[in-house]
Amino acid sequence: MTTTSTTGSAGAREFLPAPAGPPSARRRSPRLSLGRRRTIFGYALLTPAILFVGVLIAYPLILSVQLSITPGRFASLNSAGEGITFDHYLTVLTSPETWASLLRTGVYVVGTVVPAFAVGLAIALLLREAFPGRRWLRTMILLPWAVPGVAASAVFLWMFDASFGVVNKLLMHLGLISQPIAWYADPHTAMFAVIVPTAWKLFPFFAMILLAALQTIPGDLYEAARVDGAGRFQQFVHVTWPGVRGAAYIALVIASLGVYREFDFIFPLTRGGPNDSTTTLAIGIYQESFQYSNMGFAAALGIVSIVIAAVFVLLVGRERRKG
């Protein structure tokens, strides 16, 4: 039988043997109060989580900050913390290349997320309807999401191949182009050619999230809208969109951040070229650290990238709250 007490430790004392000696000689019990012990217990349970977070997130972040303020050019982590300077940040912020990379990153993010969202929404609306084979199609639609980026890149590299790719063959067959286009070797077409595979991989994510949101909209609302004389477009504007807006916002933010740091598509396809036309911030960081052994600059660029992403999330969040 378990005895409980409503008076905490004082109640528990009733079951303890009486201390020997005069009361004045009694030593104060070293035992902690129950509340204190509970606090310690709580922190003890949190310890593994704190350690994992510390090791996996905080330590690399701290190391990055440390590298970014270490003077000079170096390629060893052992150099971190040898002095303090903000020169790398100054170089990052005053370099036209940083802003050009940021602009390219913006083009890549918008160019990928907008069409992927549009296609994802269209497919979600389609999959909400009942038709034969819907379950099978739902599974098929999700497949691009499961394909590793590097594997998808290899496929698109061949599809967009200048000499033997199906894209050029198709466009030439349709009479849209007269000469094959070197999609990944031409600075004017390379960005488009990396956006296409990225959007292809991303649209199932939107389709999945939006379909889940669509299924939470009560059918009564559509019924009421129809009774009020609303057409398909008005139903979408006044019933469907308000119903999925919250999920769409979250999905857009998550997807944008994912594309913002995307590496798996760009690097295998173009390595940031030609002529830097696909060098986004993520590619720039990789090049500076692993190709040019410029870890301090790369770390500073990485920290600046994190700050930009954080500002983006804050601004979008504020707009969302206003909305």
């Binding site: 378990t2 007490s5 528990a12 035992r31 129950l34 012990r37």
Partner: peptide, 10 residues
């Protein structure tokens, strides 16, 4: 018999 304090300590 196990008291709450004993359980807490354990």
């Amino acid at each position: 018999m196990i008291t709450r304090s004993t359980r807490g300590r354990r």
